[in-house]
Design a protein around this nucleic acid. Structure first.
Lengths: 409, 409
DNA sequence: TACACCTCTGAATCTTCCA
DNA sequence: CTGGAAGATTCAGAGGTGT
């Protein structure tokens, strides 16, 4: 059925290696050259046996731009007529890259400025924390391969818009379409929203098994997306700065042939190993989505407006923590859930806070939980605060005591 | 107390208008010049009475870049030594803008490449759907004004990291810190994560109240964030391409002085109207809190979740009425506004209810309104119910009474 | 002024623990 | 044993400090 994909590794500066590759023989080029950071990058493998490093220090803009220009000329030559190019850079070099690319490939070949957005460690900054890198998407001609990919609808999207076909009325205004009987016309199944140029893909986490110890290693998901977007099986993919070889691994997994070039023997050895082992660690976050981590009751948190707090997720007992502290000890908060008694809620809050050096915590009560209780069974550190709705309810009950069935304990 | 902010509108090309402005007199410049789209932009007002349009067609890169360069030179002159500049552009012009900015202000003045990310509706496309614009952040000197803003932690972050201090063990490994008794050491109050350079702010929804009919109109939230990040009250903000005047509106709302320049009479007229309307509602804003401009009243009702009520529109005193009644008399509710004392709120509620055969009404208190009051001055029918946030605040104040200055009546 | 080094980070995984 | 929840871990980081 399908051919075993071929993977070639070539050693050297791509400027001198590329001339050995035939013209117009490659369908996709992804390149990830140095970012003009003016720093030396190094990282040890997890077992600390080896250290990979490379210099990214340049004497001038000009030197860097010429470096890029010369290589892009050769890359352009080997790219097929329907081929696509993705150039990975960051805020240090976007403008330089764009100029070099425009000059060699023509400004009309520019298709998209892709923003790879991620959240990353490191806080305490006096600046805006950098949280994105840029990938420029160019094609060689007007007629290029492009497979439309789909994303899920944003949670805010109106269901009607997903399900109903639309039309324009007499004034050109968009309205929901109706048939002759006046009924709404269904849209048939929809796949989602076409992929946008902002890609939210988790950064390769320091603890990820996928991480191999090479600096600047890119997540497999990122490369998979690029490859799926612009190639089909058995196409040829080229990475002239292949580093740890993520592009080649992704290509092989997706049955694309690939060529990788790098100046470093260590990098090539590493790539070679990765291709043979072909390991991918699935990112839970990416597969299940960020929302699965939420367990603070988001709508209930609006009870707290007017006071400064930090929402807490990924914990069953605590919904938020006050920004203020009590003599250095944190002050956690829980909002009582529906179908949860005050005692249950209080115990969860207390339990989650027990080991955390807490002296005061607040529980927002939303109902009486089936019986009147005033915290007798709860530790004294738990302060119960009634929601306005509960307070109103209690006041009304006092005025006109209704025959309420109380569940006995 | 605080000075009424000044707003000046100047007509003309900023290149010829800027020379009338004093050197180093402006603390923040936000500019949003044409994006080099090579298109003509037009949009009708909602009532279709007027059409705004402008040309964004250029003979060459060079013409556009020179246009920018000349204007940035003048802008640089009027910018104060601690001043900041934000340059708004999109994928058509990022590299040209960056070059012009680097040339005039110096590459070392570059601070951040801000990505404004938004979701947009669009049918199927053979392209990646553009969903971002770029804002370059430059400063005039090394010593600039920057107020750190905070975001929520990622939902995947665990509580321990937020709460516990860390240290390094004998092997240099990071571990949670413990004191001599072996107890966990708390981290004190935390505010969240410093703001990143990717800003997820909804695009002006075509139906948004905020939308005024001007093409390329920017969301208020975007400008508010920029202004809060780099200025303080009574600073001067300049927008040399002010268009529909969002920058000036945001400046005024945040008590900053502002200068707007535009070549179009229509644009200036529109801006002027927007600012006047803001002034008209100013008294309202002062009473009800600035957040009202962003529909804060809708969120205020969330305090009532858990009880059945009917929201009341168009009434100055009553926000909602309970579905339940008291012996046939209605039970109105009011939520105390920011900047409103409990007495004021209670009186409004009482007055609005007076003629309506009311025997019981609820007032949800959100702050102490400047002095301690327990409802003595209010009619007995008004029952005060504290918001959870206020209840928590009061509890904390009781524990560690801070020396708070109370405004006497 | 340049850079080596140290401290403080939080994201998302890996790992352990517990019901 | 098994699955989920909570704790532990590591870093193309960032800023400050000292040489």
């Amino acid at each position: 059925m399908h051919q075993e994909p071929e993977t070639r590794l070539l050693k050297g500066d791509c400027l001198s290696v590329l001339p050995t590759i035939q013209s117009e023989s490659v369908d996709l080029v992804y390149l990830d050259p140095p970012f003009f950071t003016q720093k030396k990058h190094r990282l040890r493998t997890r077992d600390r046996s080896r250290e990979f490093s490379f210099d990214d220090i340049w004497s001038s803009n000009r030197e860097y731009t010429e470096f890029l220009h010369d290589r892009i000329v050769e890359i352009y030559r080997v790219l097929s007529d329907k081929g696509c190019l993705f150039f990975h850079c960051d805020r240090n070099s976007t403008h330089l890259a764009r100029f070099a690319l425009d000059e060699v490939m023509g400004a009309e070949s520019f298709k998209s400025e892709i923003i790879w957005h991620y959240r990353r460690w490191s806080g305490s900054t006096k600046m805006l924390l950098p949280a994105h890198q840029t990938i420029y998407f160019y094609t060689k001609s007007h007629d290029y391969t492009f497979n439309v990919l789909w994303e899920d609808y944003s949670p805010a999207t109106n269901v009607d818009q997903i399900l109903q076909r639309r039309a324009r009325d007499a004034y050109g205004k968009t309205v929901y379409k109706r048939n002759d009987a006046g009924d709404i016309v269904s849209n048939g199944g929809k796949k989602g929203v076409p992929l946008s140029d902002v890609w939210d893909i988790p950064y390769l986490n320091p603890k990820a098994k996928e991480r191999i110890g090479y600096p600047t290693q890119k997540p497999l998901t990122l490369l998979e997306r690029i490859i799926q977007l612009t190639t089909k099986e058995n196409d040829w993919v080229l990475d002239p700065f292949c580093g740890s070889g993520t592009t080649l691994v992704a290509s092989k997994m997706l049955n694309r042939n690939a060529i990788g070039i790098d100046t470093s023997d260590d990098a090539l050895a590493l790539t070679s190993t990765r291709i043979q082992e072909l390991r991918k660690s699935e990112s839970n976050l990416f597969i299940r989505g960020r929302d699965t981590y939420h367990n603070a009751d988001e709508t209930a948190l609006t009870f707290l407006q007017g006071i400064e707090y930090v929402p807490v997720q990924r914990n069953q007992g605590i919904d938020a923590i006050l920004k203020e502290d009590l003599d250095g000890t944190p002050i956690p908060i829980r909002i009582q859930r529906k179908g949860e008694t005050i005692i249950e809620a209080g115990n969860k809050l207390y339990h989650a806070s027990k080991e955390k050096n807490v002296r005061l915590m607040f529980l927002v009560a939303r109902n009486n939980g089936g019986y009147f209780i005033l915290g007798d069974d709860l530790p004294p550190e738990v302060v119960i605060v009634n929601s306005p709705a509960l307070e109103i309810r209690n006041c009304l009950d006092r005025l006109s005591p209704a025959p309420v069935t109380r569940t006995p304990k």
